[in-house]
Design a protein around this nucleic acid. Structure first.
Length: 511
RNA sequence: GCCCUCAUCGUCUAGUGGCCCAGGACGCCGCCCUUUCACGGCGGUAGCGCGGGUUCGAAUCCCGCUGGGGGUACCA
């Protein structure tokens, strides 16, 4: 067993001095699996009153991008996952972008070499394989530690051939074990992990080096990361041991491997899966708290009979002990429902303002977004309560109240609904409704409802659904809408009657 | 091949030897409410991969098998 860092839980169950980190590579756009990992780290830090470090692993210039970097920061801010050290705010271990830390790695590498932990290796994969074959071993065994004890003369000879050596870490000849925070004890037998490359032939340090070095320097106490990194843990521990030896690290951190987030089939959720894109959720009008709630459910549970909770409640409960070992499938449907639950739980006023902000941001283009006059803002505020229980996301809300916001000359009927509800049969219904509404003294919901019931239900003897269907399509453009009388009221008598007359004209001409 | 890891309803999960002929949630199916669509209410559907042990007793512990996933890179 490696020497564990102090993880004494006090009487409150809290661990003192927790320092965790989130260290993504800025490649592509942020996906939900990545954010889930971030959330668990963040919640763990907040729960224990520790420090959340945000570090950018941008050592791969070919794949990293500034755009991706900014999306990452923007996403975390949107979700409310604040960091105590990292980009934008600095900290005692700055800089927090690996691209700015190269001199640090250079120094550590030199000390590691001086300490005998790293050695130059010249073997090519072909040579390794040839040696395995010659010895009657499985050729796919991997590097055979052949160059461990090359003499200065041998190294000189390779150099003379123009070969640039990689640097490998000399693995200890003992079993490598750790007590995984989520999985319990894990052991890799001595000799099962070959000496691995930490610095390329061209002098570039690899992830295998920089990640543990930064964790050590930043005094990270708990590494919570994806299950895919579990097999690299013995190597990290070995490197840590070397870092402790040269005085760079104080202790080996605790490791915890979080289950995968799966997509369709038995595959890890792919970055290319449309459901994986965090940006997509934001643009679709998901709430941060809804998304966070669902993401938390991917590999964690707060209690037996409960799956709706706030971020604060999660932080209160997230001590790292209820994390599941099983991979979790991302279920877009459930994600949507969880979001809808949070949406409905919002105070109406809050909901209305978020909807307004969403419309102002112009996430969905209805030909009216990005700009809202005072009159329209008032309509949104008034319509918000009508749609809050009918939608799952803000973009659905936008679609549902679009009929109110759209300019009258670009108002259009849903053709399918119009064909169904505005046929010849609808003409007398519309005519009666128009006649009744034209006489209306005050344009209020009760007055509108009463007038229409008298004219259509009592007067024409129609069933409500038959009577109101055509009006709904005529006024809102679709068979699915907010409640009819309220919709008519919000539209105002002029706009409402104009639409009803237009629909009448259409229905009448069909007959 | 070798190493690591996982295995409860379709899906996410609760469950750490008796409270479980397995609980919750999503989905799905009925019914109620109803001016559309929703919300809400009520009810239902469906699961411990297989085989051996251990034990008075196993979803829970052990072994094997099967199946899935990951690693075995001068990717992260």
């Amino acid at each position: 067993m490696t020497a564990p860092v102090s993880t004494v839980r006090g009487t409150t169950g809290k661990i003192a001095g927790v320092r965790v980190r989130f260290c993504p590579s800025p490649t592509g756009n942020p996906h939900v699996g990545l954010i889930r990992t971030c959330l668990f780290n963040w919640a763990f830090a907040r729960h224990h009153g520790g420090t959340f470090v945000f570090r950018i692993e941008d050592t791969d210039a070919a794949r990293d991008s500034q755009e991706s970097y900014e999306q990452l920061l923007d996403s975390l801010r949107w979700l409310g996952m604040d960091w105590d050290e990292g980009p934008g705010i600095g900290g005692p271990h700055a800089p927090y972008r690996q691209s700015e830390r190269r001199h640090i790695y250079r120094d550590v590498v030199q000390r590691l070499v001086a300490g005998g932990h790293l050695y130059e290796s010249y073997s090519t994969p072909d040579e390794v394989e040839a040696r395995h074959k010659a010895a009657g071993r499985d050729p796919k065994l991997g590097y055979d530690n052949h160059d461990r004890d090359l003499s200065p003369e041998q190294r000189e000879a390779f150099r003379a051939q123009g070969r640039d050596p990689v640097l490998r870490l000399r693995m200890p000849d003992t079993d490598l074990s750790w007590d995984d925070v989520v999985r319990g004890p894990v052991t890799f037998a001595a000799g099962s992990v070959p000496d691995f490359v930490v610095v390329r032939g061209n002098g570039e340090p690899l992830y295998t080096l920089v990640n543990p070095v930064d964790d050590a320097l930043m005094e990270i106490t708990h590494v919570l990361r994806g299950e895919d990194l579990l097999p690299s843990t013995p190597r990290q521990i070995a490197l840590y041991l070397a870092l402790i030896d040269i005085g760079v690290a104080k202790a080996v951190p605790e490791f915890g491997h979080l289950p995968y987030v799966m997509g369709e089939g038995n595959k890890k959720l792919s970055k290319r899966d449309p459901h994986a894109s965090l940006l997509m959720y934001r643009q679709s009008g998901y709430l941060p708290e809804g998304l966070l709630n669902y993401l938390a459910l991917l590999g964690w549970s707060i209690a037996e009979d409960r799956d709706i909770f706030s971020v604060a409640e999660m932080v209160e409960a997230f001590d790292g002990r209820r994390v599941s070992v099983n991979p979790a499938r991302f279920d877009p449907k459930k994600c949507e429902v969880i979001n809808a639950t949070h949406l409905r739980a919002l105070p109406v006023d809050d909901f209305a303002h978020r909807l307004l902000a969403f419309l102002d941001a112009g996430s969905v283009d209805l030909g009216l977004s990005g700009w809202l006059g005072d009159e329209r803002r008032a309509l949104v505020m008034a319509a918000a309560p009508l749609v809050q229980e009918r939608v799952q996301t803000l973009s659905e809300a936008e679609l549902m109240i679009g009929f109110l916001l759209v300019h009258d000359d670009s108002f259009e009927l849903n053709e399918k609904d119009a064909a169904k509800h505005l046929g010849a049969d609808a003409a007398p219904v519309l005519a009666a409704a128009i006649a009744a509404l034209e006489l209306l003294g005050e344009w209020t919901v009760p007055a509108i409802e009463e007038a229409l019931r008298i004219a259509l239900i009592d007067g024409l003897g129609l069933k409500p659904r038959v009577a109101f269907g055509p009006l709904r399509v005529a006024a809102t453009g679709a068979a699915v809408s907010p409640p009819l009388f309220e919709s008519l009221q919000l539209l105002g008598s002029h706009r409402a009657l104009t639409r009803l007359r237009a629909a009448f004209g259409r229905a009448d001409s069909v007959g």
